Amino acid sequence: MTIFSLYIYDRHCACVYYQDWHRTKRPKPAVEGGILNAVSRAVAPQAADTSAANSSAFSSPRNTLSSNTGFVVAIGDDSSSSSTPAQAAVDGPRSNALPFDEEAKLVYGVILTLRNMVKKLSGRDEQFTSYRTSAYKLHLYETISGYKFVMLSDPSTDGLRFVLRQIYNGPFVDYVVRNPLVTMDSREQGIDNDYFRASVDRLIRGLSVFA
């Protein structure tokens, strides 16, 4: 079991943070103007990323994400799952051909579609929390303020919403919400804060499911 990547989206549907650990291939850099500033140095547009060689010390090897296509097993709660076009954005050779901004939009589109489908089929009180394919499992935690924390992991991993909640209640609140230098609800700036990135990295690497 292992953890592949983490995305954070704000209430404007923009990806404001990205970090990964075990992926076979690094996403292609976003096109100029495709993502907000300071989302991740690893996927920043090449024209603006003059320090690519000196990217964050907390970047880690990407060596386990499989390239097999997945099949749906279930959907609905932490132990449930569903199939979507996100496979093309986060897994396999096709994902490597996508710029990061397209990948981020695809992942968000999948979440939005499945969340709306769950509410229509099961009622407004039902929450979409995860889905699983044969190649990966997606976990979702949404805050009252509209931030969406999305994690991709090995398909055999149990529900990780508690980990996303820990990231929100811990590093996110400490280094983003309470940080006067971070502009919240910004349409122009991400949240690639070194302390936040280091704290998230430490938390994820300390999990028993991290390999």
Rank of each mutant, 00 (worst) to 15 (best):
Y195G: 00
L152W: 04
G146K: 09
R205V: 00
E142K: 10
L160P: 11
P85Q: 10
G206I: 03
C15K: 02
S80F: 05
S66E: 14
K105F: 07
A97S: 12
I144A: 09
L181A: 13
I191W: 12
F162P: 00
E102F: 10
Q46W: 06
K137C: 10
A104M: 09
V150C: 11
A88T: 04
A53K: 12
R26T: 15
A88N: 13
Y141T: 01
K105W: 02
L164T: 13
T64R: 14
H22E: 14
E103N: 06
G70I: 07
A44K: 11
V209R: 05
H22V: 11
S51M: 11
D158M: 10
D158F: 13
V118W: 01
S122F: 12
S5K: 07
S66Y: 02
S60A: 14
F100P: 01
K105M: 07
S208H: 05
L203G: 01
A97Y: 06
S83P: 00
Y7C: 02
L138H: 04
L6M: 05
D201F: 06
P45M: 03
Q189Y: 11
F4H: 15
G33H: 10
I167R: 05
D185W: 13
V90Y: 07
V150W: 03
V209N: 03
A44Y: 06
M117T: 12
N68A: 12
Y108D: 04
D77K: 11
I204M: 13
V209G: 00
S66I: 10
A88L: 15
P180Y: 07
L160I: 02
P27T: 14
A44D: 14
D154E: 07
N37Q: 14
L152D: 04
K148E: 10
T24Y: 13
L152F: 15
Y108T: 00
P171Q: 11
R205W: 06
S186T: 12
V118C: 13
K28C: 05
R62T: 02
G159Q: 01
T24I: 10
V176H: 00
H139P: 05
V43F: 06
R132S: 15
P85T: 09
L98Y: 11
G206H: 06
V209S: 11
R115K: 08
A89C: 15
I204N: 04
V43R: 07
P180M: 08
L121G: 01
G109A: 00
P171D: 14
T84R: 01
S56I: 00
S83G: 15
V43P: 03
L121I: 12
C15H: 08
S55Q: 04
V110G: 03
S60D: 08
R41I: 08
